[in-house]
């Protein structure tokens, strides 16, 4: 899986799963994409959205070839933690799943799989982040 060569690829979109404010801001910056069939590369998560929908959307985004990274707010990631971890352990590197802090909840680096791994090699990393957040 690591052996596979990466080819130069342009026009890759950024997937997005998060609360309304985060998604709005990102769309304002211009990452939003809606294709002909009304498929969106973003998902607004509010209290009405079922966890299963988030998971389905996540799987759909990870399966797409034109997505380079998936931004997911940490509280959403927490809801579908199993799926996120599963994807991380599958060895696939593209798209990359990035956990970003959401507006309401402070960022907790201890829950982020990548940060756990970073802290394993760099013990001072958690302290640097822990003081900040």
């Amino acid at each position: 899986m690591v052996k596979s060569k990466f080819l130069t690829q342009t026009d890759m979109k950024i997937g997005l799963i998060g609360d309304e404010d985060t998604v709005t801001g990102m769309l304002l910056a211009g990452v939003g994409h809606v294709d002909g069939q009304g498929k969106k590369n973003f998902l607004v998560v509010d209290s009405k959205v079922h966890i299963k929908d988030i998971e389905d959307h996540f799987h759909e985004l990870t399966g797409r070839k034109d997505i380079s990274m998936i931004l997911i707010t940490q509280d959403c990631a927490e809801m579908i933690r199993r799926a996120v971890d599963e994807y991380e352990h599958s060895g696939k590197t593209i798209p990359t799943v990035l956990e970003i802090p959401s507006k309401d909840t402070p960022y907790d680096p201890r829950k982020d799989g990548v940060m756990q791994r970073v802290a394993f090699f760099l013990p001072s990393a958690m302290a640097a982040l822990g003081i900040e957040s």
Binding site: M12, I14, T24, G32, K40, S68
Partner: peptide, 15 residues
Amino acid sequence: IERAKKPSLTTKMYP
């Protein structure tokens, strides 16, 4: 959210 159609921000990937 309604106005999102085509992304003005895209990413390019190269090795």
